[in-house]
Amino acid sequence: MGPIVANIASPFRSVESAIALHYAAHDVAPATEFADFHVAVDPVGGLRRWIRPQAFFRFDANPPFNPLAAGQAFPLLEWGLNWCVSAHCHQYLIVHAAVIERGGRALILPAPPGSGKSTLCAALVARGWRLLSDELAMIDAHTREIVPLPRPISLKNASISVMSGFWPEGPMSPVVHDTLKGSVAHVRPPASSVERASERAAPGWIVLPVFRAGESPTLTRLPRSAGFMRLVESAFSYSVLGRLGFDILADVVAASGCHEFTYGGQLDEAVRMFDALAGDR
């Protein structure tokens, strides 16, 4: 997946079938090849094999998190992989953000949960924008380019049915209920995005999405300082990189237009506005 090689093991059929669905277009490395991460999703032993079975995520054989219900095995793998990348890949500055691309320029959507980031990301990908990542904007420390990491788009709660209607042909996994984040489903990344995973993108726009039910979509220009501070708040490895982290984010902001996008679910109108934004430059 992008520049990362993960060695994944799991006896769960749900994990196997979800990987077959969502990673069908990804390269499969030989088992002997170097892997950045060795991970597994395994069943919890003892009584838990029979009563309310659970799964835990292993990283280098150690479980860094508490186990979850076995039905959440694939979301657990996805969350675990996000953690592997964000906690260890310090050759990049990593921001919690969706990133998509049009015309060689990246649209970065840093946002806290509930802001409609993934819904907006999926809607734009459904209408032809290239998916770089739904969760992790990886910024090359030397070139300031965004490095693609195209993986499944994670949808939650109401956005699952919204996206089923908006993108009926988008391959979606079965809905997993009662997770820590509510109901969760994943949408397969388009094969065209996976095939172009080695094509980086220059920073283009930083847009802070704000979901407010029923509100008309509005795109408002923001001061660059506000866009910068949002990136700082959303960055995983900013404090690890120190002054270099500041320089990287400052260069990304200097090269980008900064906006706030308030919307209430009108995805067709949202796509039209972002297409117009991409055409503006």
Partner: peptide, 15 residues
């Protein structure tokens, strides 16, 4: 201290 100035605002990092 390292800093950037955009429009009227300044962002600043204190190492």
């Amino acid at each position: 201290l390292v800093w950037r100035q955009w429009d009227d605002d300044v962002v600043l990092y204190n190492d």
